[in-house]
Design a binder for these strands. Structure first.
Lengths: 343, 343
DNA sequence: CTCATGAACTAAACCGAGTAAGTTACTGAT
DNA sequence: ATCAGTAACTTACTCGGTTTAGTTCATGAG
């Protein structure tokens, strides 16, 4: 009742293990007749190669790793990651690659997991997401010499390959749009301040506001942890301040929706009293009233792009170090309008 | 620049491979001093066990498989699966198990993937979701003799272990609530008709309506593919029919939200003209206006429960064949109210 | 008729661990 | 002094494939 091995096939076929190996792998060294016979017997016995044995000889694992530093329970609520994963999966499925997923509780553990997977030959490569300043993972991965693709801006990625999109461009587009609508006081409810892409968006935001003309546009940034609760809290604080902004740009859709609720609680009209822009466009943004103006990007395509890059890296194909995906584009919907009193 | 092996450690320590193996695995057969020395050297060299070599000796893969029959691109939009995965992950992460994920395009391929993973010793067990009538996967898994936990009702699971919750109870609760509100014509926009849980919910729905009294409650079921588009289409059809229902129960939240939009398009007031109930309670249900009355269940907990069951099965611990999780409970919100003209 | 060539194989080493069985060397009892 | 017992090892084989280095035999050229 044990699983058949090539030795079993060899015995049945009256040949050596080596001949069976050649036959099953389509290598020369066996006659057509013998090969056909061996294939028939292997099919009959229901033989499956044992990947452990193959891996021992340095074969590919046909698996890619993704360790996510995220409280597992909130994962399901993060459209971004889920869409990213589905995009990665779509690309991997074509080549019969699997995705090895593990949720970790900190970056030390994340490095540990990657070290183990790589050391144990269980993955051929991995993704790194949410880089922060002086990220220890970069050096750790470089030291491991494992194929890695950073999903995010190259600035902190060191020698690692990256796939990214120009968030600065998207922020600039948004600010210019709001300024054109007459807004002179714009707030940004941002994500975690340590993350590279938060910093970059922050800088671009400030720059874009300043570029509108000296002293013309007041700007303010509030940092959060991306949760709806924090988004609501910051919105409440912003809207209660004496110098209330007339437009708020949120770093994700969860916070934007929460912010919209807060505004409505405070009996403010959106967009007449307050314009709202969401970063990332999930179904969520479209079902609320008014539907949210959002920075849309094709996240699954982003993930697929990263997957292609990683697979090329693993295959040893020549790759450009850094691939720029399309930037997010602004989709105006009902949550933005002219600033009150402008014109 | 190659990875160190126990042979390298043995050479450095001046002992045999066997001694190193004993030392690293905490087995007797080496002195304290030698063990300490070997451990120090292994740390210094950054040795990691090669799981391929270990697996060859029959060790665990410390990985669980999940092949999902789903168009990968829509995965990110399915809160249910993402929450399920996050619940499974939460349980696995504690024991350093990883989750092997692959999206497949049909059940034949799903069986193929499982056969390969199991045959190749890459997973210790797997989940089966979305069982349908006469599901070929059940027999295939039984034949493989691989530890499997079916997530769903036991009726079609044959000899396989299951984790399920009583959807019938939840449906009954919903119908009784709507009837008490005066509704006499209730529709159900259901999921894929071939799925076991759809059938069971259908039956329970009809039964509950009939139990309200002979001929007292009109009921209607429309089957869809779970997408928002189909949900909207069916809603449009239902609301245009001469005998328009006063309440609709949807099989997921995506369709419920889409249905709400359709109702509002058709200038119907929710809940005055139409009551809406969603199955599964995601953030989506709470941000629309009015917020949706929903059948809530703790999906991550459900996934965690299934993961515990599978891990117990893998460990060879004694397990009950079928574990019943808590049923979904109805959370009334703004989308349900008394039927117009009742009382 | 002999030798070179190459196709079709076989035997055995190898990958990196685990482990059963065998070997030392030392301790303590008789 | 001798023997049993044991701690501390070593040796060698195992897992299931891949791969290298032969070996055998048929064929064709010289």
């Amino acid at each position: 009742m044990k699983r058949p091995t090539i030795a079993d096939i060899a015995r049945r076929a009256g040949v050596s293990k080596g001949a069976v190996s050649y036959a099953l792998n389509g290598q020369p060294g066996v006659s057509k007749a013998t090969r056909a016979n061996i294939l028939a017997i292997s099919k009959e016995l229901g033989w499956q190669p044992n990947s452990a044995a193959r891996a021992l000889n340095g074969a590919r694992a046909h698996t890619i790793g993704l360790a996510l530093f995220r409280p597992a329970r909130t994962l399901g609520m993060e459209p971004f990651f889920m869409e990213l994963i589905s995009g990665i999966e779509a690309e991997l499925a074509d080549r019969s690659y699997a995705l090895m997923l593990q949720v970790v509780t900190d970056h030390t553990q994340e490095i540990e997991v990657y070290r183990r997977w790589w050391g144990e030959g269980r993955v051929d490569g991995a993704f790194l997401v949410d880089l922060h300043l002086d990220d220890a993972r970069v050096e750790a991965m470089r030291a491991l010499n494992m194929p890695v693709v950073v999903i995010g801006h190259p600035s902190q990625a060191g020698p690692l390959s990256t796939v990214w999109s120009d968030d600065g461009l998207a922020i600039r587009e948004t600010v210019e749009y709001l300024v054109a609508l007459g807004h002179r006081s714009i707030a940004r409810v941002a994500g975690l301040p340590r993350l590279v892409h938060t910093t970059l968006r922050d800088q671009a935001f400030v720059q874009a506001c300043q570029d509108a003309g000296p002293g013309r546009v007041e700007h303010l940034i509030a940092h959060t942890d991306y949760t709806g609760e924090e988004g609501a809290r910051m919105t409440r604080r912003l809207l209660s301040s004496p110098r209330r902004p007339t437009a708020i740009v949120y770093d994700n859709d969860i916070m934007a929706v929460a912010g919209l609720s807060v505004a409505q609680e405070m009996v403010l009209d959106v967009p007449a009293d307050l314009s709202i822009v969401a970063w990332d466009d999930s179904p969520l943004s479209q079902v609320v009233r008014p539907p949210l103006t959002a920075l849309t990007r094709d996240i699954p395509a982003y993930g697929a792009c990263a997957a292609r890059q990683l697979l090329a890296l693993i295959a040893g194909e020549p790759v450009v170090l850094s691939v720029e995906d399309r930037p997010a584009t602004l989709i105006p919907r009902g949550s933005t309008g002219p600033a009150r009193g402008s014109r």
